[in-house]
Design a protein around this nucleic acid. Structure first.
Lengths: 207, 207, 207, 207
DNA sequence: CATGAATGAGTGTTCATTCAT
DNA sequence: AATGAATGAACACTCATTCAT
């Protein structure tokens, strides 16, 4: 059950759409949605601006499709993790790892989401963004609280602050992450988790 | 010696400028620079769009003035910290605290900086943003390396990753921080530092 | 000899053309020629927009064919009436009746004619509209003048005004007439003629 | 109490608006609303297309203002007639005369109304057109029925048909009427009334 | 200082039309 | 006969900017 109500109709000639969406996502991510002209996307795709409208209703509907496809995939991964019945620490580890995998696969969509979701949320068309945010918060906050309760996480945490801390820490990575770099998503996740869970300072010496 | 070369001329009618800049900053932060119309700023200020051009050369020059004023103040604070000769951990603590104070004082400017700096950097007019970023990176990265060298920070850190981690962690806060809330900037800084330095997981029991 | 020079080629696949033209006429009448998109016609016909161009050269040529077919039929009827050698009053009666029959049979075409002919007249392609109008005026005006001369119609008439009066009165009916309604075209013609010829006021009493 | 809810704000600098509206009305009437480009109106006014948007929200709002101003004036005249307590025949005479005066004063608006009102009625913004039509029908139909009841009009009339007959007969005149021609509106009204009330045929001889 | 009116370049979008398949 | 994809010109509209008053 996808977070967005879109029925991703998989018609045979669907390939062109996907190509064009990938192009659009790349440009949106690089220049921002508003600053991106439909002509720029068309140029990048090697067609004329008007021709995009054979495939899409509007510039906005391209954005919509990009974001909802991303969120659908993200939640497929998250839901699997949340259904696995792991402990709080292991859940956090799995969610962070899954997030970096999504960043790896949908870098452009993630960057767009970061930059644009705040003002899109208010538009009825993008109501699913708000729904996703609520679900997201519930998953992370719940896991953190569970961890504090069972002693996995520090009891002196401001859990809401910790939630924002972890959330931002992970997703902002999309702004500098480049797929195919030195580190795999799993490796980056491991290092992030190491910092988030154990801090960057050395532990007081154990005798 | 300010990071931006602007000569902050203090003409008598300077108060109006400052008011208008504050208004513009608020709108830029809320809607994004590109999505903000000059008319919207003028509406908010109670004048007509054309009248803004008595005070400013262009919409871009408003943005310029907002960002350079912010960076000048930021670096006044940072430079004082860096000149104080503190140890690495104390330097990090002081920089983070100073950063949250800036967020508190220049929330709008910080938010604008976060959202817009990436594509502004390329324009000659905003070259000082790149200069600031380099200086910023040097300060933080240097401190982290110093800390690893003298045993204050974990030796197994990927220092560049840790830099991004700390940097993002701090500044993204501008996107949700609201001045006058429950926590003072210093209190938020303390909690952030606690998480960054010591992690959110409980430490292994010492006997 | 038809008023329009079109050679109505009767190819075997002519049935499809006629269907498509009927569809187009209906949409043109309902939404106006300019406001009608070729896509809308194609939708209504259950094919794609481009496919219409297998059957027709252009949107304009559909309009052309619709109007000229209508005018050819109209003049077949009118010419028969005019050739019958009736008196002026009987001629008017026959023309009005014939007109309502045309409205009944070609409602869409008549409505299109009413709405669009004024600005089409200037285009060379639609020169036959002007020819038809001249012939039309000559027939009606001549009959009215004949009637005034032989005492069938009132001598104090401004004949040009009376011509416009009768002409408009008849054709505007196409804008509200719906075939298959309560009244047959002949019945409506009878009532119209009663009003046009004898007025709606009661006659002064004859002793 | 105007038929349209518009508050015709009479600001001092309102003159330019009125000029531009008159220009727009003329072009709308000549070419049809849809076929008229905003550029054409601007050309006619000697400014650039974009400049029109300083004065008006949209092309549609120009149309709206033209139609509602016309209807407000029309109903001012009609309401005065209907309130005068005249007999049915005198009421019809006064309404027809008033109508031709409106055609004389607002020729363009009347022509636009004739051509466009049918499809505008459905849009919420133009709901007042439907209201006007209902009020119009009530006034004319009521008067005709009253006239039939008290013996002023023929008892054998199909009143609805007579209503359409008179209505169309009057307003279609806007399509050929040119102000400043040979006949004054009152003169045309007189002749129309003569035909509508007494018919164009000679009356049977009274002995 | 501010307004009222305009400019001109650009934006998203529409649509009749074309054409290889 | 019809489709899928594209073209290219035009369209309504936006907006930063200018300038005489």
């Amino acid at each position: 059950m996808p977070i967005s109500k879109k029925t991703t109709t998989k018609t045979p000639a669907d390939g062109r759409r996907r190509e064009l969406l990938a192009t659009a996502a790349e440009v949106f991510a690089a220049q921002g949605y508003n600053a991106t002209t439909v002509r720029r996307i068309a140029d990048e795709a090697g067609i004329l601006a008007g021709s995009l409208y054979y495939h899409f209703d509007s510039k906005e509907s391209m954005l919509d499709e990009i974001l909802s496809a991303f969120l659908d995939e993200l939640w497929a991964g998250y839901d699997a993790v949340l259904a696995a019945g792991l402990g709080p620490r292991e859940t956090i580890e799995a969610l962070v790892t899954e997030s970096f995998r999504e960043i790896d696969r949908h870098r452009a969509a993630v960057a767009i989401y970061q930059k644009e979701s705040r003002h899109l949320v208010d538009q009825p068309r993008f109501a699913y963004l708000a729904a996703s945010q609520r679900k997201f918060e519930k998953a992370w906050l719940g896991t953190l609280e569970r961890g504090v309760a069972d002693g996995a996480f520090r009891a002196d945490l401001d859990v809401r602050l910790a939630y924002r801390f972890v959330r931002d820490t992970v997703w902002v990575a999309a702004s500098w992450y480049r797929p195919g770099g030195a580190h795999s998503p799993e490796e980056i996740a491991r290092q992030y988790l190491s910092m988030v869970l154990d801090g960057i300072a050395v532990r007081p010496q154990e005798p």
